[in-house]
Design a binder for these strands. Structure first.
Lengths: 221, 221
DNA sequence: AAAATAGTTTGATTCAGATCAATTCAAATC
DNA sequence: GATTTGAATTGATCTGAATCAAACTATTTT
């Protein structure tokens, strides 16, 4: 699910076209409507991306961590179509897109890799569509936690204990739920001893049962 | 919103790498899990793409018409991650992906165009996420109809009168609603004289008011 | 340390959409 | 033309999540 570059690949890119940039917690990496110049590879930190309608409706479209690539949506129109906001102090590596395309022509494997990354983003979005379109609140939260868990694991962190960088409201926006519903779903999972919640700190006690939660809407507990 | 190639571009591709294929109504263009070889440009007809979970849950991830490109999701893993099913007799042009990547290296503008198409797909998906995450039934249907309308218009058909190729259930799956809810939303829009519904035949009588429906959840009719 | 602010939890109530059920309608098939 | 089958509409009821509201906790700011 996550759109990732491995360390080595970040370096390959980094050697050729790099420009480090620090974004403090709460800062914007890019805003909707500004001109697109570069993709951004996250070197450290945590971001959310969100789109907002004219009428003020907001939707978090993703949470992004180390190794992931931001800005893919902006290629189509040369304008950023969403905001990217740091949820903790972060560092990104700027990749001028025109240069990336140039280099792709001489390093076909880079091009191929880039295509895979874009495609993976599409697959990820389809997964979110499935979640938003057909899952219940508790299933959504379980899916969300397991996804985070896996991504932390892949980065060498604990898969069973981590702390959330985002608020209940942001989780709710991403999952198509209100913050109260998110909070209740957390409490319910805790009551069933599947997870332990201490504010932002999450401990997964029974990952197998959490997985069951994800899959079976018909499973009456 | 639609991921499109213009006629000329289809021809450029068609001249170099083409293989026409006919898919009858109800036929599969590709299935989840089969090996990815080619992208498919729709020359005529109408498709739906859908993902399904192990537990049988299904979600329509898109409806696709002439000029659009199918198979982008499969690049990431070399396997198709969704089914593509023809909703009417259709014709596609097969584009072996390996060849497309090769050619991209010598026609940079083709590569650039391809990147824009992939990016547009991501933007489209974000739009659907916004819809699924924050809109009410009626708003979803209005958004859906306006999107279809625009795409028909772009292809030289009437923007105000067209017939749906998909069932209420398929619309519902795409919009995250049950078929009964879709039907009721149609009826409501008809009662308000915004559209006229005769089974699959849709006539938009007041496109401006339909647009209003899309935007304002707070608008009390 | 106190005050202010932002975020979280929990309860009570409401409501949009799901579910269940019964017709109606349309299109294949015989 | 009659029959079967799949799709659509409409009504009645139920329910999961939204909304409203209050209390509580953590984090900044002063």
């Amino acid at each position: 699910m996550p759109v990732g570059l491995n360390d080595q690949e970040i370096h390959i890119l980094g050697d050729v076209v790099s420009h480090k940039r620090r974004i403090p917690r709460g800062g914007y990496l890019h805003r909707t409507g500004i001109k697109f110049q570069s993709l951004f590879a996250i070197r450290s930190g945590f971001f959310k991306t969100c789109v907002l309608e004219e009428d003020g409706r907001q939707q978090v479209t993703g949470f992004h961590m180390t190794g992931e690539l931001l800005g893919l949506d902006a290629i189509s129109s040369d304008l950023h179509t969403c905001d990217a906001i740091a949820l903790e102090d972060s560092e990104v590596c700027e990749i001028p897109f025109a240069k990336l395309e140039e280099i792709s022509l001489v390093i076909p494997s880079l091009m191929r890799h880039f295509h895979k990354i874009m495609s993976r983003e599409i697959v990820r979005d389809h997964g979110v569509m499935l979640l938003l379109g057909s899952m219940k609140a508790e299933e959504r939260l379980a899916t969300f936690l397991l996804n985070l868990s896996r991504r932390f694991l892949m980065r060498g962190y604990s898969e069973s204990e981590f702390n959330l960088r985002m608020t209940r409201e942001e989780i709710g926006s991403y999952l198509g739920l209100k913050l109260e519903t998110v909070s209740r779903a957390f409490s319910k999972l805790q009551d069933e001893h599947i997870i332990t919640v201490d504010n932002k700190r999450i401990q997964i006690n029974d990952i197998a049962r959490l997985r069951l939660k994800m899959g079976n809407s018909s499973c009456v507990t």
